[in-house]
Nucleic acid binder design. Sequence first.
DNA 1: CTTGGCACTCCGACACCCCGAGTGCCAGGG
DNA 2: CCCTGGCACTCGGGGTGTCGGAGTGCCAAG
Lengths: 340, 340
Amino acid sequence: MTSEERKLSVLRAIVEDYVETREPVGSKVLVERHALGVSSATIRNDMAALEEEGLIAQPHTSAGRVPTDAGYRLFVDRLSSVKPLSLAEKRAISTLLTDAVDLDDVLDRTVRALATLTRQVAVVQYPSLSRSAVRHVELVPLVPGRLLVVLITDTGRVEQRTVEVDPQVTDQLVGDLRARLNAALAGRRLDQVAALLRETAGAFRPEDRDLVASVVTALEDALSSQREDRFVLAGTAHLARSPLDFPQSIGPVLEAIEEQVVLLRLLGEMADDPTSGVSVRIGHEMHHRGLLETSVVSSGYGSGAQVARLGVLGPTRMDYPTTMAAVRAVARYVSRIIGG
Amino acid sequence: MTSEERKLSVLRAIVEDYVETREPVGSKVLVERHALGVSSATIRNDMAALEEEGLIAQPHTSAGRVPTDAGYRLFVDRLSSVKPLSLAEKRAISTLLTDAVDLDDVLDRTVRALATLTRQVAVVQYPSLSRSAVRHVELVPLVPGRLLVVLITDTGRVEQRTVEVDPQVTDQLVGDLRARLNAALAGRRLDQVAALLRETAGAFRPEDRDLVASVVTALEDALSSQREDRFVLAGTAHLARSPLDFPQSIGPVLEAIEEQVVLLRLLGEMADDPTSGVSVRIGHEMHHRGLLETSVVSSGYGSGAQVARLGVLGPTRMDYPTTMAAVRAVARYVSRIIGG
DNA sequence: CTTGGCACTCCGACACCCCGAGTGCCAGGG
DNA sequence: CCCTGGCACTCGGGGTGTCGGAGTGCCAAG
């Protein structure tokens, strides 16, 4: 083992010990707990070098070392491998996810499973529906002047919008529009729908154009939003588990999580590593003040027709190999369920 | 003013000061800040009596007094009145709630408005649909062997269930069933539907009974669950605002909030006071370990066709008059929106 | 390059003390 | 009978001081 290799072993040992004990790790305990084959003085030299390289840091003089974000990054990228889940854990996922009644329920169970498994905050994004096809369009007059527009896709997604219309609109006209829309759209892929909508709209009498335009707008809105902007959360209580995890306060973290835009941007920016199948973002890489001490492990899920991301958020000081395994496993499992 | 009346004034003053300063309040500051017309020694006697009655307590000897749960209860019931909202606040509610596209969006905006306004955790339960009527039933074959059942009501609720069916089922049969279900159910009130479902089911050929039974079960399930078991949350970050609010940790509180059953039971047990229009539950009245230091202020909302509850959860040491006003105002506002 | 030794630094725990806020009680006065 | 000013007492919190231990960096020798 070259001295360079040993240095990396030292880094790995520091990360592992620090994650476990949550305390800065010194040269002495390092040689005691890991068979590194050299003395503590040597380790000290290595540590000084690692610190020079910005991979570890001391909270203060005469304290042990703590990994920096860069240290974790190196650890995740090169020093660790995804740790296989235990049979019990796999069984737990399977149990938690069976018997879901609809998509909402699937995602709800998924997010809970993920939170329980990783003991961290879990996020599951609603799957996109861009590749799915229109099954049915329903128009429901509520009170006069209000119309509910419902779009049902063949993948089981249901989008709804309420639109304001002229109170004079007759049920007959609504029925006519419903029939034409279904004739034009049923079976069409969502990405083709926008064009078809405009065609259909042109076929109506001028005096009915207002109604048609409102409905078309609502449908286009439902299509474009794709509900990728929604997600479910679970496990926020885990943030409060150990005050050590977030020295200041979990307040900023909670705020960031509630700010839906932040989480969505974060998930959107992440792309899975081809080999591990997951994506990791650490500390400052989040580019968010409130999340400087947190990391996100996420993975895409779903297949073909609908794709989105799920993941967990926890302290930078997290057990990456295990967390990555859990995220990947849950993503695969839920993909299977949704897929068919 | 009798001495009994003065004692209650003292209690009111203690609650108000304590809520404001978050520090135990002593006899001296009390006479300074409130025109009670007597000396601090007299106040001390009154305080001793209030303590005897269990309405206030000392964190430790030689500290000021703090209201007990019973003290807050008396304050809420007899010593305070709901404080009218400022114009700016009313306008804020109005602004936040306009332009919602569908029910999900309305509730989402509502819960955010409530959290922002009260600076506390807000909960909004999904409205029940028991009194509404069936608008349309849609059956959507997904992959072979799986059928999506969608129930649309005239109040704009959309319920969906996936059912497992015989993969051999033909589209024609599904279409037939869809037509018959709609003929039988459209326009009927949900509480009449269960009986009608059974009738309709009887009219099919024996060999199709399996399919029909599955669909009917799914519809009944959708009806009975009524989605009252769902709610949206916002403002959890407010829990971390002041460490003083929750001396130990907000962990147990977060856990209780995530445990949907707990919140739903809580809301379900609460009934609005006829005069104030809201309901308050304080500390130990919650009957939950994790919520001993929290209170809930809630109110029913909606009208006729759909009714549910919304509210906020915060430290027992909260500004009840203002919070009650905000909850009531938001409840009224969202009722108007949903109502028509 | 590694190692043992050594001097140095600094955090954290503990002990201590003191101050001030707040109380309870009492005797006197309206 | 109730209110009041005075007084002695209690107790928690904050500030200071001290001490020990953990950990480091450096150096000279192997």
